[in-house]
């Protein structure tokens, strides 16, 4: 084992051993904080006992209740449409910023990048309250409109889907920017120069060179925002004024108000299934794009 006799193979063997040991804490943490609760959640969604996940028999009634109720289908559709709208606007607004940050050669680039993602330093709850101040009935926008005599009654900008969408777009934009920055690796100024030299207009360069090359980044950003938006709970609840019914708020309602824990678990599993299918579709799309 020891000394000069140790062949290279054994070295890699012990390296691998080391690697495993180093991985153990992380894996254990993942097991206890992620995998075990998932198993618990999955089991609870089949439980006949309303309180203990592992007591009681197994039943499909909660899935039956969730999937045969048109209201939950509507909630699922709300969730999806909120996710799509938020990712669309977050991507549209983040793309120019990310593109600028990638292509910029300014020495302020690092500072600007930090500024772009700085909102992440504040919690989503605080930023949601910020939006309540801006969009509320007595908020900045409404009082400006009224002092300019453009409106007499407050325009309802918050406590509805509009408010929830606006707040979510802003809150999730830094994620989109970060994801795009990471995904724009294939952008190459030389390709643009070559295209221009061959006579392509700026618009054409953007359309034929920049956009296709940045598409993987755009997709990653959109996926990230979409997943965060459909699982969002605090912002839709606070900005929606109770009028925005999405899966996140419904799970909370069932878990803490009506205390139907198995139904809450079943709805969570449905949400997870939604996530997974979106991720599968995304990976297919990405593979096709790169092929």
């Amino acid at each position: 084992m020891s000394g000069a006799a140790a062949p290279a193979q054994q070295m890699t063997g012990s390296n691998r051993y080391m690697l495993l040991i180093l991985l153990v804490p992380g894996l254990l943490a993942l097991m206890t904080t992620f995998l075990l609760p998932m198993v618990w959640l999955a089991r609870a969604s089949f439980s006949t006992s309303s309180m203990s996940a592992f007591g009681g028999g197994v039943t499909l009634e909660h899935y039956h209740a969730a999937l045969t109720d048109p209201f939950y289908w509507k909630v699922a559709m709300n969730t999806l449409s909120l996710g799509v709208t938020v990712s669309f606007f977050a991507v549209i607004l983040s793309y120019p910023i990310a593109l600028f940050l990638t292509r910029s050669t300014s020495r302020w680039r690092g500072v600007l990048t930090a500024l772009a993602v700085a909102p992440l330093l504040t919690s989503a709850v605080v930023r949601t309250y910020g939006w309540m101040v801006i969009l509320g009935d007595r908020g900045v926008i409404n009082s400006t409109l009224q002092s300019l005599s453009l409106t007499t009654d407050p325009v309802r900008l918050s406590n509805n889907t509009f408010g929830a969408t606006v707040a979510l777009v802003e809150i999730l934009m830094p994620y989109a920017i970060l994801a795009m920055l990471a995904g724009f690796g294939r952008l190459n100024p030389q390709l643009e120069e070559a295209a221009s030299m061959l006579g392509a207009s700026k618009l054409r360069v953007f359309w034929r060179i920049i956009l296709p090359l940045s598409l993987p980044g755009i997709l990653t950003g959109a996926l990230l925002v979409f997943v965060l938006a459909i699982s969002a709970f605090v912002t839709p609840r606070l900005m929606g004024g109770g009028r925005v019914f999405v899966l996140g708020t419904e799970v909370f309602q069932e878990a803490t108000v009506t205390l139907n824990w198995p139904l809450a678990a079943a709805l969570s599993v449905v949400l997870l299934a939604l996530f997974s299918s979106v991720i599968v579709i995304y990976q297919r799309a990405l593979r096709r794009l790169e092929a």
Binding site: Y129, M132, G136, D137, R138, R156, N159, R237, L238, G240, G241, G242, R243
Partner: peptide, 18 residues
């Protein structure tokens, strides 16, 4: 009804005049 989900709670929104 302006909000069905007063934040932070149903007292503060009256206190603040919202």
């Amino acid at each position: 009804v302006s909000t069905w989900e007063p934040a932070p709670d149903c007292y503060a929104v009256v206190q603040s005049g919202e």
